[in-house]
Design a protein around this nucleic acid. Structure first.
Lengths: 234, 234, 234, 234
DNA sequence: CATGAATGAGACTTCATTCAT
DNA sequence: AATGAATGAAGTCTCATTCAT
């Protein structure tokens, strides 16, 4: 039943796509898509240049496959976790944002976020896939959780979109950081990822809680005129 | 005293470096450093390929100049603003994080964050510059503000590093988003940047406020074992 | 005695070489030798890439086999037909040039002329084979027929080489055309092959006939100097 | 007024396209389009690989330019010659087919016929260009000449299409031969091109002349069944 | 015998950089 | 100073050929 029963040639063929995707993710995040040579990916996956093209018709297709594969897997896991949950909104938010996201953070797949941010503008197809398959469902899920918390009196009335982004954006940002500046040995570590994730979520949930102090009124009028460099066309 | 007083030829010559840096920032952020041709930068700046090399000895040097120039300017502005301030910690945080950052968000220079995230690993010099010239002073500034807030009883005792990152990371993230997925016309806008910035800061400051409810104790033991795909080497 | 009597496996095995040669002829003529992939030939012949190499050690050997096989078969048929003939020179010429050549024209093997023209310079062995095995015997045969016609008073005295080429070249040319421009669906058909073959032969034989008018004297001196673009090396 | 007055850089730039086209024609005819490396063309034209791409965006575009340029020039020359002529149909046919064609035969541009024959099926655009720009006007011209000869009583009534092809096809064929088998040093020369051209035209014109003997009736019924190799699908 | 996964030399094309004008 | 023609290193992708199964 295991792969070991297959003839060697066949077994290797079935493992190749994943090996290539893993190698590609590493390298694309490490060096950027454009600066990674197709042969490097092949070599890191333990095959020759030509073999890569047996599995993916072009470097660009490889990129798309890397993103789709990694995002799809994570998504399925998160959605399943949320569907099974039946506690308070606060606990569900924690379960998803702390526990599940800590797993993401520790997984090499967390690097896809950097890839998406980096390559979205070059490959509209990627932006579209990400918007439809990741952002939209994630927003729907988070909105429903927060709304439930408001309805149950756990959270004070607030803009679900703002709360959602205040909760999520730092989580994405730590993943980006881990695979960008954070991966440069010369720069000092800024924080421990999992610890920050936990405490960040608690901090924002505290701000969302029913008992939180009213935010002080903000006075835009106090804004001094900004001296911005002239950028008018010549 | 203004540049406008100079004769046209002279003025254009003196404006060249800035025009080249602006064109380069736009293109590097739009298409990525590696995928931008030197000639494109020159053309967008209104000069020929050869002229670019009169001002910057290589494409890589141009990249470094773009980053240093844009970050340095912003930095000086923010530091000056903080030095002049003498109100409450909460107000100072708001002034910096809302007012100043909104200016940044609306400025083309905000794109430099994407560039740093994207290219840091390819050019260690950039990561180092960013760590020393941006992260370190920004951290010192934010830490002192938050600590002052704690000392003055505005904020409850909390980890300054966590609070700082909870406040700042979404601000950076909206800049990244604006110049990445947000720049793809196909994807719907997720939020209004300036509005989000203001409400996000208020939300987190509410969580930091002295009167905020104690965060509920988090129980890591409850974490179910994560079924992560095996990635051990073969 | 027929192949049909053999068991299927055995028969297919014995038919392989011919199937591969047929597929190769089609494709080499359709796309050119260099632009045809070995795997395409194999696929069109209904076998796998590896099998092709079981029968022919290289793509080039396959090309040579295609040419030799197709030319040799045609040659044998034509020589046999001529040897059996004992009528007038005019009738023999018609029999060979009209009847026999019409068969050639309608046969896929006619495509081999395009292959020879196309590949002769790349593969000297092909040019040599063609010169020795096709041109030389064909010339000998045609010369003897025309000479016989002159001797018998059917034809007026003329240069056998010129007459031979005037007769034959258009026949080759219609074969070339059929498998080149004529095979492009966008171009209109220029003529019906067999009809042209018949009428062309009659037209030239009329010019060769004893009663034909003397050709008007041609005056090369009248030739105006040709203004040809300078192509001298610099 | 001469090119020599221009600065060197400029002068070379203006000469490049023709130099590249000449080199490309030679090599494409010599080795075939697919077997010629872009760098070879560049080298023969005395420039580097990159320079070729400064003038032609791809190897295929270079091929198309080679064909269009060479055919267009020849065409213009022939049409001009015919337009100026006002003698008998026989003399005009001779002028065009002997004098003009001898010039073509001796010019390197004659090689373009091989290129068209060879590459037409791979590049439909070429076939279309050739059909529209060469075949159609050439047919119109030849048809009108022959028809005039018939009307004036120079030629007996005959199918203009047949006569035209009997006249022309050997002329094209000698060009093909010159740049194919004829270019292989191992093969003996079959004829002297210009001599053959002249005598061939005279021979066919003799067959077309008003006084030529009626061609003997051809009896297709006499055709023996052709023993063609079985090509039925398996 | 037959297959098709794997290889790697080789070809097209791009583009950072140079330098004559 | 400014230009843009020219270069050639380097990268993507193809495909003839091999060989384990």
């Amino acid at each position: 039943m295991s792969l070991t029963d297959l003839p060697l040639r066949r077994r290797r063929k079935e493992a190749r796509p994943q090996e290539l995707l893993d190698a590609a993710l590493e390298l694309f995040v490490e060096k950027g898509f454009a600066s990674t040579r197709a042969e490097e990916v092949a070599t890191r996956a333990g095959v020759s240049k030509g073999t890569l093209y047996l599995y993916y018709p072009s470097k660009e297709d490889l990129l798309k496959a890397v993103i789709k594969k990694n995002l799809s897997e994570r998504l399925a896991a998160g959605a399943a976790r949320a569907a099974d949950f039946d506690g308070s909104a606060t606990d569900l938010a924690r379960s998803l944002l702390v526990d599940w996201w800590t797993q993401i953070y520790d997984d090499p797949a967390a690097a896809v976020f950097k890839l998406v941010i980096t390559e979205a503008r070059n490959f509209p197809e990627i932006a579209e896939f990400y918007a439809q398959e990741v952002i939209t469902p994630a927003h729907a899920l988070m909105t429903s959780i927060i709304q439930r918390g408001i309805d149950r009196g756990e959270f004070r009335p607030l803009d679900t979109s703002v709360a959602m982004h205040s909760l999520i954006l730092p989580l994405i940002m730590v993943c980006l950081h881990k695979h960008s500046i954070g991966a440069c040995s010369e720069t000092p570590a800024l924080f421990d990822g999992p610890t920050f994730i936990r405490e960040h979520v608690d901090l924002v949930l505290a701000g969302m809680a029913a008992g939180a102090p009213n935010p002080v009124v903000h006075t835009p009028a106090a804004l001094p005129a900004a001296p911005v460099r002239d950028r008018s066309p010549k």
